[in-house]
């Protein structure tokens, strides 16, 4: 399903990803944890090509981009559509209502008919529990509601993989649960997901695999119960002690 091989990312002098190899099977939920600066967000952004990797290749559902040679600009938007991105700061379009936010991609990018898209968008917003907030502008919604619109917006493009970049980090504590619930429902439906998060409970309850990153490397990976109870690497132990 997803196959990342030898992925490097360098910003000027700073090498953030130092050779990442990762396979994710269809329908699996992978949680990426690690200290800040470990490269976990950059890895996620490389999958959506919001950052262009320096070298290495990414394969998603039979489509491959190899960054060792130059990648044509035309190849990027269709590749991006394989993945849906959910941002830490939601990044909703403030000049559009919740419904318009969700409809924007299918209408502008896929050129689907307005009526069909509207129906789909309404269903998606109901699914994330916002069926009664269709015509609200982002500023009229709480953080948790905005993030759920963000999830619906990404789902509207029918991606093969959902990427979550610390989706609950900007939220007040009491609003975290509603977003995590939507994510868990999605996981139960069989969506392939890669989630960068500090929510260890989510990792325990929903993840098939937990990956610990540090210094641009994948240090350790394993099933959540093993990772949290008996990590093998010293750095993983240290990190888990710090956050628990």
């Amino acid at each position: 399903m997803i196959s990342i091989k030898g992925l490097y990312k360098r910003f000027d002098q700073l090498e953030v990803l130092k050779g990442i190899d990762l396979e994710v099977e269809k329908g699996k939920v992978v949680v990426v944890i690690g200290p800040s600066g470990s490269g976990k967000t950059t890895l996620l952004r490389c999958l959506n090509i919001l950052e262009t990797p320096t070298s290495g290749s990414i394969e998603i559902e039979d489509q491959t981009l190899d960054f060792s040679s130059s990648v044509s600009k035309k190849a990027i938007p269709p590749f991006r559509r394989l993945t849906g991105m959910v941002f830490q700061s939601y990044n909703l379009f403030p000049h559009m209502t919740a419904l318009e936010n969700v409809m924007e991609g299918p209408i502008t990018v896929k050129k689907e008919s307005k009526e069909a898209v509207r129906k789909k968008a309404e269903q998606l917003l109901s699914k994330v529990g916002l069926g009664d907030k269709l015509d609200y502008y982002p500023f009229q919604l709480s953080g948790g509601q905005q993030q759920r619109v963000g999830i619906a917006r990404a789902l509207a493009m029918e991606p093969k993989v959902m990427l979550f970049d610390e989706p609950t980090s900007a939220l007040d504590p009491e609003l975290v649960g509603e977003v995590l619930k939507v994510m868990k429902d999605l996981a139960n439906e069989g969506m392939t997901m890669i989630v960068v998060t500090h929510e260890m409970r989510f990792a325990r309850e929903a993840a098939d695999e937990v990956i610990f990153m540090d210094g641009g490397f994948i240090v350790e990976r394993g099933k959540p119960e093993d990772m949290f109870t008996s990590p093998k690497e010293e750095r993983t132990k240290q990190f888990l002690r710090l956050i628990q």
Partner: peptide
């Protein structure tokens, strides 16, 4: 306009001109 608005446009598959016209210029 925050960089995140460009990224949100790109992330749903929009091109540079589409993002400019639909997301950035209205704001």
């Amino acid at each position: 306009i925050p960089k995140g608005q460009w990224e949100a446009g790109y992330s749903i598959g929009m091109s540079y001109p589409q993002t400019l016209k639909r997301i950035i210029l209205p704001q």
